[in-house]
Amino acid sequence: MSIEWKGIFPAITTKFTAADELDLPLFEKNLEVQLSAGVDGIILGGSLGEASTLTTAEKEVLTKFTVEKVAGRIPVVLGIAEGATREAINQAALAKKWGAAGLMLLPPMRYRSDDRETAAWYKTVAASTDLSIIVYNNPVDYKIEVTLDVFEQLQELPNIQAVKESTRDVSNVTRMISRFGDRFKILCGLDTLALEEIVLGAHGWVGGLVAAFPAETVAVYRLAKAGRIKEALDIYRWFLPLLELDLSAKLVQYIKLAEAEVGLGSEHVRAPRLTLTGAEREKVLQVIRTSVANRPTLPDYLSL
Rank of each mutant, 00 (worst) to 15 (best):
R73T: 02
R73L: 00
R73G: 00
I74E: 02
I74G: 00
P75F: 13
V76E: 01
V77P: 03
V77W: 09
L78N: 03
L78A: 12
G79K: 13
I80Q: 03
I80Y: 11
A81I: 13
A81F: 14
A81K: 10
A81R: 07
E82A: 11
G83N: 12
G83T: 09
G83D: 08
A84R: 15
A84P: 00
A84K: 13
A84T: 13
T85F: 08
T85E: 02
T85S: 08
R86P: 00
R86F: 07
E87M: 14
A88W: 08
I89A: 01
N90W: 14
N90G: 06
N90A: 14
N90K: 12
N90E: 13
Q91R: 12
Q91K: 14
A92L: 11
A92E: 05
A93C: 09
A93F: 10
L94W: 06
A95M: 02
A95N: 02
A95V: 09
K96Q: 10
K97N: 06
K97H: 08
W98V: 07
G99D: 04
G99K: 05
A100D: 00
A101Q: 12
G102S: 05
G102I: 04
G102Q: 02
G102L: 04
L103T: 00
L103R: 01
L103D: 02
L103S: 01
M104P: 02
L105H: 07
P107I: 15
P108E: 12
P108A: 15
R110I: 10
S113E: 11
D115M: 14
D115N: 15
D115I: 14
R116S: 11
R116P: 00
T118A: 15
A119Q: 02
A119G: 01
A119H: 03
A120N: 05
Y122G: 07
T124K: 14
T124S: 14
T124L: 07
T124R: 08
A127C: 01
A127V: 01
S128R: 02
S128E: 04
D130T: 10
L131I: 06
S132T: 08
I133L: 12
I134Q: 03
I134N: 04
I134G: 00
V135K: 06
Y136D: 01
Y136V: 07
N137K: 10
N137V: 11
N137L: 11
N137E: 05
N138L: 09
N138M: 13
P139K: 11
D141L: 15
D141A: 15
Y142L: 14
K143A: 14
K143S: 13
K143Y: 13
K143V: 14
I144F: 11
I144V: 15
V146H: 08
V146N: 06
T147H: 13
T147P: 01
T147G: 08
D149G: 09
V150N: 10
V150I: 15
F151Y: 14
Q153I: 10
L154K: 13
Q155K: 15
E156C: 04
L157D: 01
L157E: 03
L157M: 12
N159L: 07
I160Y: 14
I160S: 10
Q161E: 08
A162R: 12
A162E: 04
V163L: 12
E165K: 03
E165G: 02
S166E: 04
S166M: 07
T167F: 12
